[in-house]
Computed example of a mutant assay.
Amino acid sequence: MKLATLKDGSRDGQLVVVSRDLASAHYATGIAHRLQQVLDDWGYLSPQLQDLYDSLNAGRARHAFPFDPQHCLAPLPRAYQCLQASAYPHHAQLAQEAGAASVHGASTQEPLLEQLASDALQGPCEDIVAESAAMDIDAAAALAVVTGDVARASTAEQALEGVRLLMLASAVVLRGPQALERERGQGPLLSRPTTAFSPVAVTPDELGPAWAQGRVHLTVQTALNGRKLGLCEAGPDMGFHFGQLIAQACRTRALRAGSIVLAGPVSNPPVQDAQGRRDWPRGVGCLAEKRWIETLQGAKTLSPWLQSGDTLRIDMKGRDGLSLCGAIEQTVVPDGL
């Protein structure tokens, strides 16, 4: 099934069920008002939402209305916690090649987890606001899962059973000197504003065979001002699947229902010809990778970071060619820029 949260003036919004084609929706008021309620009592409430979802898709829901992502908050507007994992080793390897010291090294042994702000997560159409363009604004296309309760010391297989929902995410990063100076000595030399999420969260069964062994085998599409930035395959180059990421977080503590785990930036390695020349035919999932590639290719000027007025769009289509979670579409707006 597919779920979304509409703006209603409150912090947590109103839960709705969304049709498979994202064309219509129905309030879930008779079952639950908020998504967190459903996550807290998944076994009892999710079958009721599934029945409403089936009725909506069959055209039997009496009070359906057109679905508009512009009216959406993040599916889970505030979460108990939000973690980002370095699940794509190529991203860190590329950074190391290009001499980007502000990015942690890749590990083939265990994933690196970073705590993100989760008290006010952004909806799919909310603006990217930064104090200054000198902060070098970037946004990374990522996948995310929402968990149920997961016990401490769960195995990867046990942790994978705790995945309740899947979403797309746009993880905004401020990479410039101003941002770095503010976080000296505080772990990663990156500033992390709030993260934005797709309008719709989907249960893994909606992906069919594209959800396999804890990975999403679909293409993440990223565009900047209407021009392709990347068509990255999310599955084959994911070094650690979501079960492993969740299990890593549970090594020292349990996760509460409503925890979010991101995997990104989605990243694919280059192809190499007989002469050893490398090409990135899938593009990139963030501007940092684009600039690192340009650095390695000896470019005299690098692509700019996000600027005021730029629009970033992130989407992912299912095997049927339809958008799976709806698109994230954000505009950088002036705030001293």
Rank of each mutant, 00 (worst) to 15 (best):
P281A: 14
F240N: 09
T194F: 15
E294R: 02
L306W: 00
S303Y: 03
L207S: 09
G285I: 07
R253M: 14
Q272M: 15
A327M: 08
L322S: 12
E329D: 04
Q307L: 01
R251D: 13
G214R: 06
L324S: 06
K300R: 15
R253P: 01
W211R: 00
G208W: 12
G239S: 06
G214H: 06
R277G: 03
E329Y: 03
A263E: 08
R278F: 10
P204T: 05
L224M: 00
W305L: 04
I314N: 10
Q307G: 01
G285R: 09
L312K: 01
M316I: 10
I260F: 01
W305K: 02
A263P: 09
A247L: 09
V202M: 08
K228L: 08
M238L: 12
A254N: 07
R319T: 09
R319A: 14
E294I: 00
L287W: 01
F242N: 03
R291A: 09
S198V: 14
C325Y: 05
G298A: 10
T311P: 00
E289D: 11
V332D: 02
S267M: 05
G309D: 14
Q248N: 06
F242K: 10
T295N: 01
A274D: 09
F242V: 05
Q244L: 04
P269W: 03
K300P: 01
G258H: 13
P281F: 11
F242H: 09
Q272E: 15
A249Q: 12
M316T: 04
G318Y: 04
R192N: 13
T194W: 14
F197I: 07
F242S: 04
Q213F: 08
V332E: 02
R227Y: 00
E329R: 14
R253H: 15
H217F: 08
L306A: 06
L231R: 15
L224E: 00
P265A: 15
D273I: 09
T194R: 11
G264F: 14
G230H: 03
P265F: 09
A247Q: 08
K317S: 07
L207K: 06
R291K: 13
R253A: 15
S303N: 02
P281D: 13
V200H: 06
E329A: 07
G230N: 04
Q297S: 10
K300E: 12
G285F: 14
K290S: 09
L296C: 10
G239K: 10
G276C: 10
V271A: 07
V332R: 13
R256P: 02
K317T: 00
R319C: 07
G214E: 06
G226L: 06
Q272S: 13
W292S: 00
T195I: 13
A263R: 14
F242G: 02
Q221H: 09
S323R: 01
D310A: 01
V220W: 01
A201Y: 05
S259P: 02
A299Q: 10
T295S: 08
P209T: 04
T311F: 01
G243R: 05
T203R: 12
E329C: 10
P270H: 12
V200Q: 13
S267R: 04
V284F: 04
I328G: 04
I246T: 07
C286A: 11
S198G: 11
V200I: 15
N268C: 14
D315S: 13
C250M: 10
C325Q: 06
E294P: 05
A210H: 03
L224D: 00
E294C: 11
I314M: 11
G208M: 09
P269F: 03
A201P: 11
H241W: 06
G298W: 11
P265C: 14
S308R: 11
S259L: 10
